[in-house]
Amino acid sequence: MRTAYRTRDGRILRDVAAIGAAMVAVGASFGAVAVAAGLPAWATLSMSVLLYAGGAQFMAVGLIAAGSPLAAVLAGLLLNARHLPFGLALGGALGPRRWQRLLGSHFMTDEATAFALARPAGPERRRAFWLAGVLLFLAWNAGTVLGVVAGGAVGDPGALGLDAAFPAGLAALLLPGLRDRETRRVALTGAALAVLATPLLPAGLPVLLALAALVLPVLARRRAAAAPDGAAPAHPGGRSADHAGPGDDDESRVVRAGEASC
């Protein structure tokens, strides 16, 4: 058991390290940009420690430098509202104890959520969440310190293609879950809605709009319920009372947990 955990931890660590390395570089660019925009070092560092949300931090620096602090708060919060549904999905994955949930919540990011939800519910998911959460937090903050100290000497993360690393990593973590038909339909529809809405809506809203795709399974269920004699039509896997429960969305992910790389 112990060795099984150790090997799995090793795999998760290696995967998290790849994203962590990119986060050090982007964190450094945040530190450098913030200091160049006139933010004092203490403010730059406390943003990375206390706020710990890359997108909102870059946005806030821009809006503070432009002289609109209120807009910085509102835009940043709009951008981060997605963490609430992440928390709902993660729930007990942070741990059974209250302090674990209170502390773990601070480490919740898109990447930590994706790493955790890619693992089967239970102890494995919890370990993945904490490993990713703590390591990425350290990587982001180490990067910020580096950027504050090195300033303009920090290179452009765009030249390293790091802006492609994050969406590719997220997509790779999501892919196994998309084997489930319902998840696939909702996720792809949501992604399309968000992309189409991006030129029209302020940052943050397009991503939240993806939740509108949840009407698909809800409507499918209505239709299934309305069908005579419960002749359950195409509802994926007949996910009703028979095998509902925390495990059912995980079956497809267990396959990935066995590590697709071999």
């Binding site: 992440f86 969406p167 997220l170 998309l178 991006t198 993806a210 939740l211 059912d248």
Partner: peptide, 26 residues
Amino acid sequence: PEWSRHLLPVAAAALLAALAATAALT
């Protein structure tokens, strides 16, 4: 309700997919 509980991870997947897509394209 029981049937809607399994939608929580589906909702998270939709949000993450939207993030990945918008970050990749826009």
